[in-house]
């Protein structure tokens, strides 16, 4: 039974508890590992009236090879927030897992959930904790978004490898295709876009990113693999169903054909 004295109790901090119980290894450091570990790629989050829509492609690459076609880079952090990652897949997945556990752990120990700002700050500390890894070529750069129940609005954050945390008013992007995706969103963004409008916009952004960036996967109608898209509103995290994504991407394709 993990019991601690009151003066060195880790409180509701799950990563601290992991360190105390010796379950975390020290992060990778030293020599650069090179380019053959899986990397993952274009993710976007866009604010709209009801909250946030977050989307990410499914491809992971190891150097020139496509190592996975079905990676889920956009995941539910807790009921009212989501996180998406770019960077070295292994450390990124581990970071997401510990982040999800930390939010749930805090909620259970304290009896109430962290504020959205608190969650964003927590993720920032985890990214900073991977700085050694970033030097070794295992950088992880997430984006974070969610519905702020106190302010009743959607909010999005971008990060850098050092744990820098930047809240944006319209949208955030991460990954190797983020320049292309970000440009599409920047041009198409309007304050009054509704859910379907934002959905069409993020679909177009991912399409263009996949078109121009070899490490970003496009919609794969042949295998039925579509990017992961989710809405985060007052009702919580809801993934967008594959058939709706299929029609959305089909209309993007129509538009491209008509050019």
């Amino acid at each position: 039974m993990p019991m601690f004295l009151p003066n060195d109790d880790p409180g509701a901090n799950f990563p601290a508890l992991l360190r105390r119980t010796g379950l975390t290894e020290t992060g990778p450091g030293g020599e650069r590992l090179g380019g053959d570990i899986p990397h993952a790629t274009t993710c976007v989050a866009v604010r709209f009236a009801d909250g946030v829509i977050m989307a990410g492609d499914r491809r992971a690459t190891s150097g020139n090879l496509i190592s996975h076609r079905t990676m889920e880079k956009v995941v539910e952090a807790d009921r009212h927030s989501a996180v998406a990652i770019a960077g070295a897949a292994g450390p990124a997945m581990e970071m997401i897992r510990v982040f999800q556990l930390q939010l749930e752990h805090y909620e259970k120990v304290e009896g109430s959930a962290l504020s959205l700002e608190g969650k964003a700050n927590q993720l920032s500390m985890m990214v900073r904790g991977n700085l050694q890894g970033a030097f070794a070529g295992l950088a992880v750069v997430p984006i974070f978004g969610g519905y702020d129940l106190r302010r009743e609005t959607g909010r999005v954050w971008a990060y850098d490898v050092t744990g820098g945390r930047y809240e944006e008013r319209e949208y955030v992007t991460t990954g190797s295709g983020s320049l292309h995706a970000g440009t599409v969103i920047k041009i198409g963004f309007r304050d009054d876009l509704d859910r379907s409008g934002v959905l069409a916009l993020v679909a177009k952004a991912l399409w263009e990113a996949a078109d121009a960036d070899s490490a970003t996967g496009g919609p794969d109608a042949l295998r039925g693999i579509y990017p992961v898209v989710a809405t985060i509103t007052a009702d919580g995290f809801t993934p967008v169903a594959d058939d709706e994504l299929a029609t959305t991407f089909e209309s993007v394709a129509e538009e491209v054909r008509a050019r």
Binding site: P2, L17, L23, L101, E104, K108, V109
Partner: peptide, 12 residues
């Protein structure tokens, strides 16, 4: 709290 910790650690 010890139970939450034990469970979360085991699940992790």
């Amino acid at each position: 709290v010890a139970g939450v910790r034990a469970a979360d650690l085991k699940g992790y």
